[in-house]
Simulated assay, not measured.
Amino acid sequence: MAAEMLQFHEMGLDDRLLKAVADLGWSQPTLIQEKAIPLALEGKDILARARTGSGKTAAYAIPVIQRILASKQCVREQDVRALVLVPTKELGQQVQIMMRQLTSYCSRDVRVADISGKADVSTQRPILMEKPDVVVGTPSRVLAHLNAQNLVLHSSLEMMVVDEADLLFSFGFEADLKNLLCHLPKIYQSFLMSATFSEEVQALKELLLHNPVILKLQGSQLPDSSQLQQYTIKCEEEDKFLLIYTLLKLQLVRGKTLMFVGAMDRSYRLKLFLEQFGIPACVLNSELPIQSRCHIITQFNQGFYDIIIATDEQSLADPTASSQTTSGKKKKKSK
Rank of each mutant, 00 (worst) to 15 (best):
residue 74 C to D: 15
residue 256 K to Q: 14
residue 36 A to G: 01
residue 37 I to R: 11
residue 199 E to T: 09
residue 69 L to M: 12
residue 135 V to F: 08
residue 89 K to C: 12
residue 230 Q to K: 08
residue 61 A to Y: 00
residue 310 A to P: 14
residue 255 G to T: 08
residue 179 N to S: 02
residue 283 V to M: 12
residue 83 L to Y: 01
residue 105 Y to I: 07
residue 33 Q to F: 00
residue 5 M to W: 01
residue 333 K to A: 14
residue 226 S to Q: 11
residue 175 A to S: 12
residue 149 Q to V: 08
residue 32 I to M: 02
residue 256 K to I: 00
residue 152 V to M: 11
residue 99 M to E: 06
residue 91 L to P: 04
residue 196 T to Y: 02
residue 222 L to D: 07
residue 302 Q to Y: 06
residue 159 M to K: 04
residue 89 K to R: 15
residue 138 T to F: 09
residue 215 L to S: 07
residue 172 G to Q: 08
residue 103 T to M: 09
residue 295 H to E: 15
residue 216 K to G: 10
residue 79 D to I: 04
residue 318 D to T: 04
residue 326 T to N: 05
residue 83 L to P: 07
residue 40 A to D: 04
residue 236 E to G: 09
residue 159 M to Y: 14
residue 244 I to E: 07
residue 253 V to C: 13
residue 175 A to R: 13
residue 147 N to M: 11
residue 194 S to H: 04
residue 29 P to G: 12
residue 79 D to N: 04
residue 43 G to Y: 06
residue 254 R to G: 00
residue 58 A to N: 04
residue 5 M to S: 14
residue 19 K to M: 13
residue 26 W to A: 04
residue 23 D to I: 06
residue 235 C to N: 04
residue 289 P to N: 09
residue 33 Q to H: 08
residue 179 N to Q: 15
residue 243 L to N: 11
residue 309 I to P: 13
residue 203 A to C: 07
residue 32 I to Y: 07
residue 235 C to M: 09
residue 236 E to Q: 13
residue 313 E to A: 11
residue 19 K to N: 11
residue 222 L to W: 05
residue 96 Q to K: 14
residue 42 E to G: 00
residue 166 D to T: 02
residue 143 L to A: 06
residue 280 P to Y: 00
residue 144 A to F: 01
residue 104 S to A: 12
residue 237 E to K: 11
residue 238 E to L: 10
residue 41 L to P: 02
residue 15 D to K: 15
residue 151 L to A: 09
residue 40 A to G: 07
residue 40 A to F: 10
residue 28 Q to G: 03
residue 229 Q to H: 11
residue 2 A to E: 14
residue 335 K to F: 10
residue 287 E to A: 14
residue 79 D to E: 13
residue 257 T to N: 09
residue 265 D to R: 13
residue 75 V to E: 15
residue 98 M to L: 07
residue 224 D to M: 08
residue 75 V to Y: 03
residue 128 L to C: 05
residue 205 K to R: 15
residue 188 Y to P: 08
residue 275 E to C: 10
residue 128 L to K: 03
residue 28 Q to P: 00
residue 310 A to T: 03
residue 17 L to E: 10
residue 260 F to M: 12
residue 41 L to N: 03
residue 92 G to I: 02
residue 247 L to V: 04
residue 154 H to T: 12
residue 69 L to A: 02
residue 291 Q to G: 02
residue 320 T to L: 13
residue 96 Q to G: 02
residue 237 E to Q: 11
residue 214 I to E: 15
residue 40 A to N: 03
residue 221 Q to G: 00
residue 249 K to V: 05
residue 296 I to S: 08
residue 158 E to G: 04
residue 88 T to D: 03
residue 226 S to V: 07
